[in-house]
Design a protein around this nucleic acid. Structure first.
Lengths: 164, 164
DNA sequence: TATAATTGTTAGACGCGTCTAACAATTAGG
DNA sequence: CCTAATTGTTAGACGCGTCTAACAATTATA
């Protein structure tokens, strides 16, 4: 039995198109070339040619001057990208305390290159940070203090965790 | 007075070449096309053509069949990339507990796309985590426990941080 | 509904970064 | 020191992803 090897692995650009189409189409809304072009900051012919490629890979259905829709396979890829995006943006914004715009920007880039393990651990880490409040002074708060004052807050050294 | 706007901003590929040259040349060692080609996993003509481009931008000095060296400007760019690389690899390995190989791999990709703010905060975060041990049960340890057992260790909720 | 505005497509160009094939220079061994 | 092996370069092709210019279809409006 020969290894099918679908050679599925999208470029960053194609992932961006899939992501945009998924986001624009969320809630059954009709998706237009112009919207995609605006959302991604490219010209319309770039969108048309991307749609052609994605159609050839069966990730998108597109009829001339008409309907644009993700295939089930395309939707799957898109949702994976979107999941990564959200976890990353959440990490940057909540854990690192970065402004939403920059957090999104970084998420948009990193979502295309991070390893599955890196992704998984990052998500777990955020979960952990949020679940492990250490009483009233939780980690994000202490981190924020550290960012602001450049030194550790009291409760990092004095309070908390004596060895009992 | 017109805005000089040096339009300096390297592609991921060019940053990789600069990084490789810096690493290979560390400690005055002679740098060869073949080494760069092996290190980056590309063929030699790709290296030659990259060197040509980087020379045109005054980031590298290269004489035919001979000497390869970073200019001061090139060395500066390289060292910025290397700094990002190291901070990222450190974060993935130490903070997230990812194996060295994967941590390096992720660092190699993300170093080319992360924002300055993201970078700065990530570094600060690692610093904070390492400086804020919370007594004997420090954050990385507790995180490790969480990874292993899927639930918070005792000292996240019971011990530590009562509101005094 | 005829026409204007908008949206979408096609054709073709271009820059980047890679490759292979062929050849040239350099280096190492007999 | 000559020859073989290695290293490096040139020439030219190619795929990706973008663009502009020109045209075509669709939609909105007077």
């Amino acid at each position: 039995m020969v290894k099918q090897e679908t050679q599925r692995e999208q470029t960053a650009s194609m992932e961006d198109y899939l992501e945009a189409i998924a986001n624009l189409g969320a809630g059954k809304k009709v998706v237009r070339v112009k919207q995609i072009s605006d959302m991604l900051g490219v010209r319309m012919p770039s969108v048309t040619s991307a749609l052609k490629r994605l159609s050839e890979q069966e990730l998108v259905e597109h009829e001339r001057y008409g309907h644009i829709e993700l295939t089930p396979e395309g939707a799957k890829v898109a949702s994976e990208v979107i999941d990564r995006h959200e976890a990353l943006a959440h990490f940057f914004a909540q854990a690192l305390g970065i402004d939403q715009a920059t957090a999104e920007e970084d998420a948009c880039k990193i979502e295309h290159v991070i390893s599955p393990l890196g992704m998984e651990r990052l998500a777990k880490f955020v979960e952990f940070m949020e679940a492990c409040p250490m009483g009233g002074a939780n980690l994000p708060d202490r981190y924020e203090y550290y960012l602001e004052h450049g030194e550790l807050p009291q409760d990092c050294v004095k309070k908390g965790v004596k060895e009992t």
